[in-house]
Nucleic acid binder design. Structure first.
Length: 668
RNA sequence: GGUGAUGUAGCUCAGGCGGUUAGAGCGGCGCACUCAUAACGCGCAGGUCGGUGGUUCAAGUCCACCCAUCACCA
């Protein structure tokens, strides 16, 4: 049963240093932290490193908006992020930053090494350029009308309304969100990493790393499409590391971010005599390396990253563990819907141990999303943690303290029952190791039920009234407290803070997984102070309310993007009569409308099929943007846009005019 | 649009290779207890396993199609 000591290095994805930590981030950090604490509890040499992800255009822009240097912005945000994580019991051995000396050194070293092996080449590409701001624009900073469904104000890479993906040059009326000007298209030399040369190595690595079935599926899909080389450079202005030998080219943030894992560890090694960086990262290292990530960044961690490491002659990760996203009350986390909960908002109202346990009770090794359902959260935490677990201690300790001067008996009442609990040790350990936390929690709670049933059967509160059974009460409660102690050792990775409190209640110093083997007997316990009290619904409600308040205070997009009356008058809005409406063959969302605009007739494709029947539309008056540039669509040319409101799908509502309006009338 | 995944009691979820009356925890209802910051114990009720069709002696479990939800598309 005793394994030899393992050397393990673990990472969580680096939080991007432009915002606060929220409940979604915490799924990952808590999942990782539980695993690391478990390994440490088993006595392994396990190290957990992370860092602030400091580079990239969004951080540069935000710093500019706040009129401070990007360095300063990153430092202050990283400090807050680190504190939030720490307050949730997430215990890093090192939290560094990608904007560090160590990282610069490693990035350049790796790049040079790739270059020497002829794995880097340059190529000119066309990119959107903002002439006012004098910079190239990432897709996210371009908005315009979706070429597929004509939804307005969509990002440069994908439409949130119809889900279409495209390149920014396909957008209708593209606008730079930085200057509100129309971008031009300009050539620029970019640096590429030859990912395509690593197909064989990657295929082998995917097998070796025993990646989860879901990840493998996803990878197979990408392999089928063929690996494309990776663009690793960005143009000035950019916040990042300059590419050696160039004047104005920078490394793309996604190149230096994962290298930040190594840099953070390197920095840790500097302060620790017992750690050797090379032992972990030399090509043939047998030390273990694991990355915990979200499913959105599987691509970077299972293709680019191992390929870059392979190319640079560095060891590859032992494995990569991807988790799903968090939904709140079954809804996507969203600021506008008030389902966006910041870490800080949670902490202002609730105990971090609650959410650590709740996440653990739902987490498994798969990439499925998990839901934070508030009613479920309250029920689960109160029932499991308070009602079952903590209750064992609080119903036993009173007897020991009041009647036996706080002293535990010298033997157990039921060693067999104790052994039953012990027999689950391996299975629970295996669950932790395999990141099957939900199964581990279930098993532990079944034991807690068993402990409560034992006390119920023995009825110490009856025995204490009979002189001849007095001593048996001590035996029974000592038994109960020992069962409780074992369960808390099992739960130490999940609720470390409660575990610490229990430790001092038992007057013990350190707990190791194998301390479950021998019961604690004949010693004194301290006065019992409730280790944890129930979740109150009011606190949860309060948290939800303040989440709503803080998020709705943020200026909305419309407030920021004010336009003048002249801007508004540029849009020629007209009343139109729908003469005809038909379904479009091959289009899922479009209807073809023939409109009477008074002087002329128009054909317009409108994305309203989910909401309206063609026959109900004929004869209706609607409002049309009449001077919209005609747009060639797959099904024909659309000569305008019918105005409608709503989030999409079935919830689209056409604007109509009061009786008397005639086709062709101008709206003003 | 393409690809992948998910859909089992009110809620959260288990259900290797298809096999008798489909499981757990929570919640609900009833009983009991009073040691426990109402916690615990015993019992009961709840499901045509998203839909349709198929393969089979037999399907929640395999196949096809459909619907809904989610994610990814460098």
């Amino acid at each position: 049963m005793k394994n030899k000591k393992r050397d393990i290095l673990v990472t969580s994805a680096l939080p991007y240093a432009n915002g606060s930590i929220h409940m979604g981030h915490l799924v990952e950090y808590i999942q990782t932290d539980i695993w690391v604490r478990y390994q440490k509890l088993q006595g392994h040499n396990c190290h957990y490193v992370c860092a602030a992800d400091a580079h990239g255009t969004p951080i540069m822009i935000k710093a500019r908006e706040e009129n401070i240097s990007p360095e300063k912005l990153v430092t202050s945000i990283a400090k807050k992020q680190y504190k939030d994580l720490k307050d949730f019991g997430v215990e890093f051995d090192k939290f560094h930053t990608t904007h560090s000396e160590e990282n610069k050194l490693l990035v350049e070293k790796i790049y040079t090494s790739l270059q020497q092996k002829n794995l880097i080449y340059t190529k000119d590409i066309d990119q959107a350029f903002d002439t006012k701001e004098n910079m190239f624009l990432p897709d996210r900073f371009i908005r315009g009308t979706c070429p597929k469904c004509a939804a307005k104000d969509q990002y440069g890479d994908a439409c949130e309304n119809c889900g279409a993906t495209y390149s920014p040059d396909e957008l209708i009326n593209p606008i730079s969100t930085l200057s509100n000007s129309e971008p031009i298209w300009k050539k620029s030399e970019h640096f590429f990493f030859k990912l395509s040369e690593f197909e064989n190595e990657l295929t082998q690595w995917i097998e070796d790393a025993k990646l989860h079935k879901n990840i493998k599926n996803k990878l197979a899909e990408w392999f089928k499409m063929g690996l494309k080389d990776w663009d690793i450079s960005r143009d000035d202005p950019y916040f990042g590391f300059k590419i050696p030998g160039t004047k104005n080219k920078y490394f793309y943030v996604w190149l230096d971010a994962p290298i930040g894992y190594l840099a953070s560890f390197l920095s840790l090694c500097k302060n620790r005599d017992d750690l050797n960086y090379n032992a972990y990262f030399k090509k043939d290292s047998h030390h273990e390396l694991y990355h915990f990530i979200g499913k959105d960044i599987v691509y970077f961690h299972t293709l680019f990253w191992p390929a870059v490491l392979e190319g640079a002659g560095i060891r590859k990760p032992t494995s990569v563990f991807a988790h799903g996203f968090l939904t709140i009350n079954s809804k996507k986390m969203s600021k506008s819907r008030g389902t966006f909960i910041n870490a800080k908002t949670y902490l202002d109202n609730l105990d971090p141990n609650f959410i650590r346990y709740y996440y653990a009770s739902k987490l498994g090794p798969s990439m499925e999303d998990i839901d934070l359902n508030m009613d479920d959260f309250i029920a689960r935490v109160n029932s499991d943690l308070i009602g079952k677990l903590i209750n064992i201690a609080s119903r036993c300790s009173g007897f020991i303290n009041k009647n036996f001067n706080g002293e535990l008996s010298r033997e157990l009442d039921d060693p067999k029952l104790f052994n039953t609990f012990l027999q689950c040790s391996q299975s629970i350990a295996d669950h932790y190791e395999a990141r099957e936390y939900s199964k581990a929690m279930k098993q532990i709670m079944q034991l807690a039920d068993k402990a409560n049933r034992y006390i119920e059967e023995k009825k110490p509160w009856v025995m204490i009234k009979k002189e001849e059974q007095h001593e048996e009460v001590q035996l029974v409660c000592t038994q109960g407290l020992n069962l409780f102690r074992m369960l808390l050792i099992y739960l130490t990775p999940v609720i470390p803070e409660i575990s610490d409190k229990a430790k001092s209640f038992f007057n013990e110093e350190n707990w190791h997984w194998d301390d479950t083997l021998s019961p604690i007997l004949g010693t004194k316990i301290n006065k019992y102070i409730p280790l944890l009290t129930r979740v109150e619904k009011e606190k949860v409600d309060n948290m939800m309310t303040s989440s709503n308040e803080t998020t709705s205070k943020a200026p909305t997009n419309s407030e920021k993007n004010l336009i003048t009356i002249d801007d508004f008058m540029k849009v020629d809005l007209r009343v139109a009569l729908i003469n005809d409406a038909n379904e479009v063959e091959g289009a899922d969302k479009l209807l073809e409308l023939t409109l009477d605009l008074g002087e002329s007739n128009r054909t317009v494709f409108a994305g309203i099929k989910a909401a309206y029947e063609p026959k109900d539309l004929i004869g209706r008056h609607v409002i049309v943007a009449a001077n919209l540039a005609p747009r060639k669509m797959r099904f024909g040319i659309s000569e305008g846009m019918v105005l409608a409101a709503g989030p999409g799908e079935k919830d689209i509502f056409l604007l109509s005019v009061d009786a008397g309006a005639k086709p062709g009338m101008k709206v003003k």
